[in-house]
């Protein structure tokens, strides 16, 4: 599998560590309460189509990357740096 690192370009997926849903970008405010943190830490959409997810280029440039990938065909549609996705989300 190949992942297009926004900085290093296309690389073999063995250089990356998969973390999971990109919902981890949106950590609740400290005072958001137990329910919000339960949802953030434990609940997952787990779609069968497009999944927005977090990868870490750990034996490359050590960037955290937000990818959009179809989890049935494994096709990647878009990758961007997590710091940019976060800024975009603001």
């Amino acid at each position: 599998m190949r992942i297009n690192c926004p900085i290093c370009g296309e690389r073999d997926s063995r250089e990356f560590h998969y973390r999971g849903s990109a919902k981890l970008l949106d950590r609740p405010a400290p005072d958001a309460g137990a329910e919000a943190f339960y949802d953030y830490v434990y609940i997952r959409e787990n779609p069968t189509g497009l999944n927005r997810e977090l990868w870490f280029h750990d034996s490359g440039c050590r960037s955290w990357i937000v990818a959009e990938r179809n989890v049935t065909t494994h096709e990647f549609f878009k990758t961007e740096l997590a710091v940019d996705a976060k800024r975009g989300a603001k």
Binding site: R19, L24, R27, F56, R62, W64, A82, K86
Partner: peptide, 13 residues
């Protein structure tokens, strides 16, 4: 180390 990268890039850039 990865946790710090996560905190600095994903949680609090």
């Amino acid at each position: 180390m990865m946790h710090l990268d996560f905190a600095a890039q994903v949680l609090w850039p």
